[in-house]
């Protein structure tokens, strides 16, 4: 006995359930950043049309100098901090990296205490699983503990792991993989 079935509804439900978002969502943080930029631009345009008096211009100028100084401090500290490298599948600080830790700790202590430091743990390309992210985190934690042991306030340090997703080198060589097994420093205001 032949039996003909019409399954259009089933197919439609199967596929389109959960696909109502036709345009991809944009990451919230990105959206906020874009909105902020737009707002600032709008403010500048408004100042020109209302012809601000000179005293206001001086205030703007002094704020700019303050911003410049803060940014300068961040840049100065960022330049001094040195990336720490690790062995394959290890998160202990290598002997040849201890001098860098000492330099990093000294730089962090000499900088204003208001500046925060984010430690970014990274791994080579051998695995995209959670373990690799945890390995990156443990590397960041090792650096944090070493910095704290040398006098840097723990509260100034935050951490994030990027696993294998933030390579500085993409060749498939031992030298390249070694460059990616690292903890980077990012100075935050």
């Amino acid at each position: 006995m032949k039996k003909t079935l019409l399954s259009s509804v089933a197919i439609a439900v199967l596929f389109f359930a959960g696909c109502s978002t036709k345009e991809p969502a944009v990451d919230e943080q990105q959206t906020q950043a874009q909105e902020q930029t737009t707002s600032q631009n709008g403010g500048e345009a408004s100042e020109v049309t209302t012809e601000q008096v000179s005293s206001d211009m001086q205030e703007v100028g002094s704020e700019t100098n303050a911003v410049d100084t803060a940014e300068q401090m961040i840049m100065n500290l960022q330049k001094k901090l040195q990336t720490v490298y690790f062995d394959f599948d290890k998160f202990n600080i290598r002997a040849d990296q201890e001098d860098k830790i000492a330099i990093d700790a000294a730089a962090a202590k000499a900088a204003p205490a208001s500046l925060k430091i984010k430690l970014e743990g990274n791994c080579d390309e051998w695995g995209s699983d959670e373990y690799n992210f945890a390995l990156g985190l443990k590397r960041a934690k090792s650096v944090k503990e070493a910095l704290v042991a040398q006098g840097v306030e723990s509260e100034r340090i935050s951490m994030v792991s990027y696993g294998e997703s933030n390579p500085v080198c993409t060749d498939h060589t031992k030298e390249c993989w070694a460059k990616n097994r690292r903890v980077d420093f990012k100075v935050l205001p």
Partner: peptide
């Protein structure tokens, strides 16, 4: 369905595949 940031480890939240969990590193 999601672009413009650093978002990883998506995981279906239910059997019907109507929602996901994911990690945002942004």
């Amino acid at each position: 369905i999601l672009k413009g940031g650093f978002n990883i480890f998506p995981k279906w939240a239910d059997e019907k595949q109507t929602a996901i969990y994911y990690t945002s590193l942004s």
